[in-house]
Design a protein around this nucleic acid. Structure first.
Length: 498
RNA sequence: GGCCUUAUCGUCUAGCCUGGUCUAGGACGCAUCCUUUUCAAGGAUUAAACCCGGGUUCAAAUCCCGGUAAGGCCA
């Protein structure tokens, strides 16, 4: 069999997720690398849904990958309705195609029906293992005569289709790993279909990648060991061999493959928790790739230019949420206040804080503005700004105490603030700040507190307004709250101390 | 168990191909300081790594060999 190498007319890449569960963050990163590589070469990026496993595949998961990829801005540019509505390819709609190639392999005796039962196989496996051998199908059914096969089929015996794996060394050149060699003699004949209408993964990928003229197969490292058998199937079918690139895995903190047990793995989890797509993309691309410079911030468009597959790392990378949070904070602070407010609204509503028409758009923006330096995720907005909504604050009265003040002193401090604030002429951030600063000095002198320590006045005031140990400054809060509410909260606090 | 892959600060990584400029650079995180009523943000500074063992060489993180460890795939 002569090996056909691909003649690249156009770079075409794809991702091929199985819709058997929530779209995985690993799928997002693989999609990103495929997308970047295709786009920077003026190529095509396709989405193919591998839903041949009808038992486990569900339409809602297909819808979800589509939704999340769109959210990330990673869009495929070809599908069954070319030019119009760009649907992804679906393997379940291509079963007749696989059947044709399955028949071809069967006719050429490169594949065969296998009637071995689960029980039989399990026994063989046990026996091989007990002899210290690697478990591998012994090829028993490969030698069945046509008569026997027909008889078995007529008897409706359950069967699978196996591909005859040749004993040879398969070598291929991986774009990221260099030359990789496998001895397929260790493999055993693989099951490529349950029947003519139910192809399995290894077979369907090969057929589709060929028919869709995929030039580069860029996928996770977990597929590296699967590559030789796919190459054998390609050769048996007379297909060209695409160029492979196996990406390093994204890892848990303990360096195992990223899994649900140790954190969020669904793209939608990150979406819901308030990560920005641009932050997630920037974070993911840096997991296994870097430009070789000290630059760390990239937009998708810039990445299309800067990305180079040669600089992709070989070793797996730990998915470090702290770093994601940092980047997300950076992108949050970069957003225009209009946009950021819009993004925060759903989270405020979800927390039951924002009720229609209760607060003006301007106020809302001011609230977001003073909260944004503290936000790592959009969802943080609720916990950061809840005290602006509603009238009653709930907190421990001890929280009002600064340094070693007694409760009488705290009350005096609040009463002093109340007096100053009720006389403030101009209710603006600037004047609130100047007035309170000078009042604070006066207060400290009067009381014999250290003159420069503004905490004696500002801490109780800030807690009275926010009910929290950490928050924006009392001026910022008072400014947004307005005079009436501010004074009300101070008197509430004083009452609490009495 | 077999096969494959990988190996620089806790984490993401630069450097490795084309040995010297590496007393190993950057970022996150950590710590300290400045700013500051608090927490952030911002600024500054520190601590922190070439998996181990051989070899080649005047010289090795960089080249070669052998281990070890981790991960993936198969079952």
């Amino acid at each position: 069999m002569t090996k056909k190498t691909i003649e690249i007319k156009k770079v075409r890449t794809r991702i091929a997720p199985s819709p058997t569960g929530p779209a995985h963050i690993g799928t997002a990163r693989t999609a990103l690398f495929n997308y970047l590589f295709a786009k920077q070469n003026n190529g095509d990026f396709l989405l193919r849904i591998e839903d041949t496993d009808t038992q486990r595949s569900e339409q809602r998961w297909t819808d979800e990958v589509i939704e999340q990829l769109k959210w990330l801005g990673i869009e495929w540019n070809e599908g069954p309705d070319i030019g119009g509505n760009c649907e992804p390819y679906k393997q379940s709609q291509r079963l007749d195609i696989y059947e044709k190639y399955l028949k071809q392999l069967l006719e050429e005796k490169k594949a065969y029906f296998c009637f071995c039962t689960e029980e039989e196989l399990e026994n063989k496996r046990q026996e091989q293992m007990s002899r210290g051998l690697a478990p591998k199908y012994d090829g028993k059914c490969a030698h069945l005569s046509d008569a026997e096969i027909n008889k078995n089929i007529a008897e409706n015996k359950s069967c699978v289709i196996r591909f005859k794996v040749q004993n040879k060394k398969v070598k291929f050149n991986d774009l990221i790993r260099g030359e990789v060699e496998f001895d397929t003699g260790l493999l055993g004949d693989v099951v490529i279909a349950k029947d003519l209408n139910s192809p399995l993964y290894h077979f369907a990928v090969v057929v589709d990648d060929f028919l869709m003229q995929i030039s580069h197969v860029i996928r996770g490292e977990e597929h590296l060991s699967n590559t030789p058998r796919q190459i054998l199937i390609q050769e048996a079918l007379g297909f060209y061999q695409p160029i492979y690139a196996h990406l390093p895995l994204m890892l848990n903190m303990d360096r195992s493959k990223m899994s649900k047990r140790q954190g969020d793995v669904a793209i939608s989890d990150y979406h819901k928790n308030g990560y920005l797509p641009e932050a997630l993309i920037n974070f993911m691309v840096l997991l296994g790739w870097n430009p070789g410079t000290e630059r760390e911030m990239f937009t998708l468009a810039q990445l299309i230019k800067e990305f180079s597959i040669e600089k992709v790392q070989k070793a797996g990378a730990v998915f470090n949420t702290q770093r994601l949070d940092f980047l997300n904070g950076l992108y949050i602070r970069e957003k225009s206040i209009e946009k950021l407010t819009e993004l925060c609204v759903p989270y405020l509503k979800e927390a039951g804080l924002l009720v229609q028409g209760q607060i003006s758009q301007n106020k809302l923006q001011e609230i977001v503005e003073i909260s944004k330096t503290r936000m790592k995720k959009l969802s943080d907005i609720a916990g950061l700004s809840d005290f602006f909504f509603g009238d009653k604050l709930v907190y421990e009265k001890d929280l009002l105490t600064w340094a070693k003040m007694g409760s009488g002193e705290v009350k005096d401090s609040l009463a002093f603030s109340e007096k100053i604030l009720s006389n403030v002429k101009e209710w603006t951030l600037k004047s609130l700040e100047t007035e309170m600063f000078s009042a604070s000095e006066k207060f400290n002198i009067e009381k014999g507190y250290p003159e420069k320590n503004k905490g004696y006045m500002l801490w109780p005031l800030r807690v009275a307004l926010s009910g929290k140990s950490t928050s924006p400054s009392p001026f910022e809060i008072a400014n947004i709250l307005g005079k009436e509410k501010t004074l009300k909260r101070i008197s509430d606090a004083i009452k609490m101390l009495s």
